[in-house]
Amino acid sequence: MTTEPLLAVSNLRVRFRIGGVISALAGRLTEIEAVAGVGFTLERGQTLALVGESGSGKTTLARAVNGLQPAASGSIRFEGRELGNFSNAGWKSLRRKISMMFQDPVGSLSPRLSVRSLLAEPFAIHGLSGRSLNAEVERLLALVGLPRDFADRYPHQLSGGQARRVGVARAVALDPVLIIADEPTAGLDVSIQGEVLNLLNSLRDRMGLSMLIITHNLHVVRQIADRMAVMYLGRFVEEGETEAIFQAPRHPYTAALLSANPEPDPDKVHNRIALPADVPSLLDRPSGCEFHTRCPFAQDICAGQVPASSALGTSRLTCHFPLDAGTRAVKTIATT
């Protein structure tokens, strides 16, 4: 094994063109940067969660790592090799090693294919006809805990949880080393959500998988991720060990997200960090620290100067005034 991490992303930028020729001629900004200089590493067997509000660039980042979205600049190294240098054949073999799960459990399954065809598809694509397809389909169904007769069902005949299991089975069919999962539990009932997380956790332990999980559900993050990264307007504002961040978030945005989680206890007294106004537009990024327009602790310097990325304990964050590690965020606010 190499000492190189499984996945190393540095200074990645992804841009989208918006508007047409006319607005370009009019000299208006025609590109938005959905991912604006993100860097992280993922070790073998590790799980990293990307969290953030919608529009924060989580999904775009994940798709860029998988090559579904071209990067504007920056580097993505997988097993020590730069993705940009891959030939077409290289990409195809890469697709075996990195598999992706999409948000909509039913929608990510081709509606006119039976579960059998869906599960056999990875083998068909990669020409692995040597193995017995039927045996593989049965192995995969058993692996994700679905009865054998599900092979003849169609996606519209599956519940969300069952469809998600089929998605998981497809993702692990070719023994990948990395799974990128976009909202793996979205739209699932809580009891089913637990089953899917248990399944992912056990597969990871058995197969030694690395996972990149995108989710806005922080409870899910805590149950599955070793590390987490909080995204805001296409950048990481805080990244570190999950448990450490849950115990003591250092960036005010992280603290606000954590405090915004409604908890199933009617008597709980919430000391919330209220985030004013809506998320700023990517077309009009705020100056200085981009969070200062919503940050309850913002001071003059925050609007003027971009905070540098700094290491604090096990975390990295970009903030002029990180919250104290010792005090819970909510208490800090009470005294501010």
């Binding site: 998988n66 579904l68 697709r95 992706m100 948000q103 929608g107 598809e121 497809r170």
Partner: peptide, 25 residues
Amino acid sequence: AEHVMAARSMGAGTARILAVHILPN
């Protein structure tokens, strides 16, 4: 659509995507 993205992410070629994942729908 997500099922087409899923097929692409698996490495499916254009012909396969058109014939298996788009045409029948």
